[in-house]
């Protein structure tokens, strides 16, 4: 996101941040060298990946894992490591 920097008199005082969870607008997906690839056919929706993901980047829709939030996933690979069905594999990120 292109960040519009505010001037001192436009910011809330004291350095407080009033918009909870707005780091969602900061994309850490660019850090990745490997990206997780989810195979829905193998996935049993145990959600272990969700519990172990440090970046809240497992996308779940209607109770089913549908993939990863690649805007934020840093590619650590813990999801692949913990997956009991090897439904997630780490692949080299293509530039």
């Amino acid at each position: 996101m292109k960040e519009q920097k505010k001037s001192w008199n436009e910011l809330p005082i004291g350095g407080s941040i009033l918009e909870a969870g707005n780091s969602k607008n900061y994309f850490t997906g660019t850090w990745r060298t490997f990206k997780p690839v989810h195979n829905a056919k193998l996935c049993i929706n145990c959600y272990f990946c969700w519990m172990h993901c440090p970046d809240d980047s497992i996308v779940i829709e209607n109770g089913k894992v549908t993939g990863m939030d690649l805007d934020h996933c840093k590619g650590c690979g813990v999801c692949a490591e913990v997956c009991p069905k090897k439904a997630i594999t780490m692949e080299k990120e293509e530039k």
């Binding site: 969602k24 969700w50 440090p54 809240d56 109770g63 690979g77």
Partner: peptide, 28 residues
């Protein structure tokens, strides 16, 4: 886990902890 996933995670993504750091998982 099927109940937990329906709740809002307390820590949003976009933080700048190292890739693979478990501290955000602990917070969760």
């Amino acid at each position: 886990l099927k109940d937990l996933i329906k709740k809002q995670a307390p820590l949003a993504s976009g933080h700048r902890m190292c890739a693979g750091c478990p501290a955000p998982v602990i917070v969760k």
